[in-house]
Amino acid sequence: MVDVALAAVDAAATGLAMNGGGLFHRRDLLAEACRHVALVVRGRRREPGLDERIVDAAITTYCLDISEPKTLRGLMPAHRF
């Protein structure tokens, strides 16, 4: 059983610590959520979309979008935050 709230804290804290100034993208949080889930479930079956739920919880609770997109690619949701 994976605690989504705890995983969101872990993903946000790791993203903040890894990137200078606390700036990171959604894909960075997704990578940390995948790592967290992999450590918790340790080879057992996990429910589909769990990583995305963790990232959504981390973004809504702990993140603030402060950047303005400068390219068309920057407007895509995967490249925000």
Rank of each mutant, 00 (worst) to 15 (best):
I54D: 02
H36E: 11
T61L: 12
V2Q: 09
G74H: 01
G49Q: 08
A17C: 09
A11R: 01
V40Y: 03
A8W: 09
R26S: 13
P77K: 04
R73P: 00
L39V: 12
F24P: 03
C63R: 01
R80W: 00
R27E: 07
A5Y: 13
M1P: 14
I54P: 00
R46Y: 09
V4T: 09
D65P: 05
C63G: 04
D51S: 15
R73V: 11
G74E: 03
P69I: 05
H36P: 00
E32M: 11
G22P: 06
R80D: 03
E47Q: 13
V37M: 10
A57S: 07
F24Q: 00
R45W: 02
A78S: 08
T14D: 12
D56H: 09
A12V: 06
A31W: 00
A33H: 01
V41Y: 07
D51W: 05
A57H: 06
L23H: 10
R53K: 06
T71F: 07
M18H: 10
H79R: 10
M1V: 15
G22K: 04
I66F: 11
L16E: 08
T61S: 13
G43N: 10
G74I: 03
L16V: 07
H79L: 08
K70Q: 11
V2M: 14
M18N: 13
R73M: 09
A78R: 07
G15Y: 04
K70N: 05
N19H: 15
G20L: 11
L64I: 10
V40P: 01
L64F: 06
R44S: 15
M18K: 15
L50D: 02
T60F: 00
R80F: 01
